[in-house]
Amino acid sequence: MNRIRTPEEEQAYRQKQQAETRQLNEALKGRWDQVLLGLIPGLDLAVERGHQHHITCPFHGGANDFRIFQDFADTGGAICSCGKWQDGWALLMHARRCGFGEAKKMLVEALGGRFDASNLPVRYVKVKDPEEIARKDAFNKKIVSQIWGEALPLSDERSFPVRRWFFNRQLHEVRGPLTAVRCHPALDYFTERKVVHTGPAMVCMMTDVNGRTCGLHRTWITDDGHKANVESVRRLTSSISTHPIEGSAVKFDTDRHPVLMVGEGIESSLAARAIAGFPTWSAINQNQMTKLVIPDYVEAVIVWADRDQNDVGQSAAFELVSRLRKAGKRAVCVIPPFSIPAGEKTVDWNDVLRSIGLEEARKLPAVLQVLEPLRASLN
């Protein structure tokens, strides 16, 4: 029978455990990509392809759903439609369906029974060559400039596929000009550096808080405005070292208005824009939403969240709201008041619009309780 520890012994035990955990974290920083490969089957492909590529999820099997974070070696974080894991601890516990204590035991064993990385092979870290970085930046800038230059304003008659895409998504009220959105009439789609498809694409420019171009978000569609038959319909261009995509957004409106609305995807954000009428940005995805940089002139932010089965969309929205409130801004989150349909993973504000129409969406209590006090405060 185990003896019950005294309060002093319990405190000493907890301090020892905390010290060991801190030591483990120090040892694992920069090594998560090495250690987790031996503990989580199927993770090797994600590490091999890097943070800009999605793979089939090793957990729920969803095609092109899973990817690691850019700082995966330092944090062990990853994201998927089935979850978001801020660090390697959370990812390991999810993958092995275990608690913190068991995860800690596995990590110590992976380090050879130690709390440091001295037993791991010496890691060769290639120092980034400034000239190589400059060459990659020049190439990526050229690609962004070329795609954007070939894309057409939505007012051009040849941009019918994007206008039809909006119509098919029942975004009937899309006020222009949307200068951050264009239609490319014939954009190449690459798989393993080979062109496997060429067709229309909606191209959206992502800019940072200073208005600098950080990259492009592309959605491949058909001539009649439906999803193209490609592996991953939506893709971001490679980032530029001096203009990181993190913190940027697709800005449908650039007015210096005290109120800013933020949504996740393009279509969901445009739906929110039609419902409420305030200047709107799209963060593109959950990870981007948590890192979004809001201008100083904005006083109040409305975050139109997605409702996800795994709470990833809601969590990202709440994280942004919490950060903005700490910075002294008014911030509130609006979540679709509908349940997720059977067989679906999420419901967003475009789904709300498609379900009940624009006028009924404007009358929803969840919408009115946010917009009425805000509009009253502006008068």
Rank of each mutant, 00 (worst) to 15 (best):
E8C: 01
E10M: 13
A12M: 08
Q17H: 06
N25D: 13
K29Q: 13
L39E: 04
I40C: 07
I40G: 05
A46N: 07
H51R: 03
Q52F: 05
H53T: 08
T56R: 15
G61D: 02
F66M: 11
R67H: 15
Q70M: 09
F72N: 03
T75C: 12
C80A: 15
D87Y: 07
W89M: 04
M93F: 05
H94Q: 14
G99L: 08
G99W: 10
F100L: 13
E109Q: 14
R114G: 02
N119W: 03
L120M: 11
P121N: 08
V127P: 00
K128C: 09
D129C: 13
P130W: 01
A134H: 11
K136P: 00
I143P: 00
W148Q: 08
A151E: 02
P153Y: 06
L154V: 09
S155C: 03
W165T: 10
F166S: 07
F167S: 13
D188M: 08
T198P: 00
P200A: 12
V203M: 02
C204Q: 10
M206V: 00
R212F: 00
T213N: 14
T213V: 12
L216R: 08
I221Q: 07
T222V: 01
T222H: 03
V230T: 04
V230F: 02
S232H: 03
L236E: 02
S241C: 03
S241V: 05
S241H: 14
I266R: 04
I266T: 05
S268Q: 02
A272N: 05
P279I: 03
T280Y: 00
S282G: 10
Q286P: 00
L292M: 08
R307A: 09
D308C: 12
N310E: 14
V312N: 13
E319A: 15
V321F: 03
R325H: 07
K326D: 11
R330W: 09
V332D: 02
V334K: 11
F338D: 06
W349G: 11
R354C: 13
A361W: 04
S377C: 01
